[in-house]
Amino acid sequence: MHKRAVFNNRILPFALLAPQILVVVVFFYWPAGQAVWQSFLLQDAFGLATDFVWFENYAYLFADPAYYDTIWNTLIFSALVAVISLSSALLLAVMADKPLRAAGVYRTLLIWPYAVAPAVAGVLWIFMLHPSLGMVARGIKALGFSWNPLLDGTDAMTMVVLAAAWKQISYNFLFFLAGLAAIPRSIVEAAAIDGARPTRRFWTIVFPLLTPTAFFLLVVNIVYAFFDTFGVIDAMTQGGPAKATETLVYKVYADGRLGGDLGGSAAQSVILMMIVIALTSIQFRYIERRVNY
């Protein structure tokens, strides 16, 4: 049975809820509503006249091949960020799970990147990867590879992927570490006694028991790569060169803020909003049945 709080005063519960509701309405529903409304409007080039055009902005968007390029960029970018940050974090967590003497220091160091603001992370990586200034860039060139993220789209994509993935590793690391700690030690020991060597133990016991954590993190990472990487991209490439690193979120900004196409930009944000809702509901549905065994 659930305990129910009983209020004698009829107004009190509403008064207690009001601040929360107010915040959600002002900062979420109101702008979301505005975006939807905006996406049905078309302004002329000088912003003098505004017409209500129903779905014309959406139709225009989906007829534009550049939009598909951006979708493709976003998919590649998100997949790479998720894969790189998840796998590195898992590797680091498995290493940190051992009873090392310096484990505390090691863990703290791994958590730091998460505290770095996206734009700062971007700048940090620019300094390392800048074709003429960066130390790492010099190393890459010394190995005989060409490297110029300012001109080459693939290099630029590599650079933003690295910076974005690096920032997310800490978060993933913490969850993987917690996930590992939640696996009873005796299960892994039983597997050892059952004749499984460490690598086999990892793939047949530890990894399957981590899949709920991994799935949860996959969704979080995709959401992150879709929406939270604006700062990194803006600081590093501004979506360039030649839009090679322009993701959906960055395009909303570029078209709306820089291009002045408010209706089209609003339509894009509505689409993004629907993607967030879809991803979040997958995640919630999954968390409810988190234990798959």
Partner: peptide, 10 residues
């Protein structure tokens, strides 16, 4: 044989 049995839950 462990006290908590340590069966592989998956």
């Amino acid at each position: 044989v462990f006290q908590n049995y340590a069966l592989y839950p998956h």
